[in-house]
Design a protein around this nucleic acid. Structure first.
Lengths: 255, 255
DNA sequence: CGACTCCTTGACAGCGTTCAACAGTAGTGG
DNA sequence: CCACTACTGTTGAACGCTGTCAAGGAGTCG
């Protein structure tokens, strides 16, 4: 299942994991092969991981097998961070993936002890995760298929530091389960963006994508900030004098 | 916009807010009328709020007005907690709502200072929010309309401590924007559950609901935990020998 | 070569949305 | 008291986006 690279633990050179644990923590390197589970939902959270090379997906399942991927993790990303003793979801290697890992207790000890810097960093990591989850809720709840795929491409583009050719590590099915779609719909949305000459494929695998027009791509993603006064007026400011619900309010408050 | 109840600040008797700030923090009480904005997306985060009576919704908007409600807050709940200086979304009073609030800087000072208890509590609050967001991603990405409404009813039932008659503070539109549906679909799903004799309405407003059969309601929500070995085998454990993607992996790693 | 995975595309169905009509409640004002 | 208005909620009918089912191409591996 997991391949130990170095038999001896080594000192982590740098990165968030090192910063989190201060200078005194040690980590091991392991390699997980494509498709393998790194940890499972409900399992005891023993380690915290940072990706060196490769890619990882984390997901939740419904009993009948419907899957929601909550996040993709790329080189440099930390994952497996839990506040409780068990993992919230399953993590699997999308590619052959090399990680460095350290015992969770090492970090939590340092954090809740006397290292405010580490606590702040940990806080920031969780905050980033929370922000991502919240904007993803907007995507899943309210965006169309093309908007979702556009948002996904922009997110990957950003996280891969805007490469000339973006190489996606995950399959269409993975993308679909991340975006709350089917893989056919993802494929169709990509074809639409290709036909619109917003992107093009490099090679023949469908995994290498060149973003030709990031501006128009961002327009396909509905998240672009525009001033829109009408919606604000309509939705945020009902008639202040209307107390139609007052009786009901009191009813609820009296509950 | 906001009505000050007490001109003099008072000491908070108990609750999370008091625990967060230790014994030395003070708070003010304010009342927001139905429909009014408490704070807006992007505004500077000055206060942290705890609901005394009433109910609050927090939401995000797309430029064209599509709305995603991220959470409902009920009496006792804290909201407005931010790690950064600005609010992630807009908060509005669903009912006439009395809150107590305290300056954000009071808390953050205490937390990152020398109060590990408060830090742990704050951590727990954020963790709960994150868990809620993640399970909501599964709902928004993968559940059907009836499953979403069932999950919503079970969530409210739980948070209202399983009352005989559940009084919903929010409209069908609010529920719809929380569940990623239209209000018509929410209404239809509720009618289905009523026809199935899983719930019934009390009175004539459509806001007072009696859950007749919570077991079957939980079955309508797809989240019920069942052991399902097939899916685990199929989805989590691809052929370990298959290294079809190995070439590609290295390609990606070389990126 | 065959077996397998990944991806694309077409045809069709269905769930949820959109559009519309209507009912019930509450507040307003004559 | 009764129109009148505004808001909320339910229900019906038709549409359409996305899912489902199916076929086939391309690449990889044994």
């Amino acid at each position: 299942m997991l391949v130990r690279n170095n038999t001896a633990n080594r000192r982590l050179a740098d990165g968030d994991l090192a910063a989190l644990g201060g200078e005194q923590i040690f980590c091991s390197e392991f390699t997980y092969r494509t498709g393998y589970e790194i940890f499972g939902q409900g399992e005891e959270a023993v380690y915290i991981y940072q990706i060196i090379t490769g890619a990882v997906r984390t997901h939740m399942l419904l009993p009948d097998g419907r899957r929601q991927i909550t996040a993709f993790h790329l080189p440099g990303d930390l994952f497996g961070l839990e506040n409780r003793a068990t993992h919230r979801f399953t993590a699997e290697a999308i590619l052959n993936t090399k990680v460095c890992l350290t015992r969770r207790c090492n970090l939590l000890g340092a954090t809740f002890g006397r290292d405010p810097g580490a606590a702040k960093l940990l806080h920031g990591l969780i905050d980033r995760t929370l922000r991502h989850a919240e904007s993803h809720m907007l995507l899943l709840g309210r965006k169309t298929a093309v908007e979702r795929v556009s948002a996904f491409l922009l997110e990957m583009d950003e996280r891969l530091a805007h490469p000339d050719v973006m190489t996606l590590p995950m399959t269409r099915l993975d993308i679909a389960d991340y975006l709350g779609l089917t893989f056919e719909t993802v494929s169709r949305a990509l074809s639409i963006l290709k036909d619109q000459e917003i992107l093009q494929f490099e090679g023949k695998t469908g995994r290498k994508i060149v973003l030709i027009d990031r501006i128009r791509l961002a327009q396909f993603d509905g998240s672009l900030e525009r001033t829109n006064e009408i919606q604000t007026v309509v939705r945020n400011h009902p008639d202040p004098i209307s107390d139609a619900q007052l009786a009901f309010s009191q009813d609820f408050e009296a509950e």
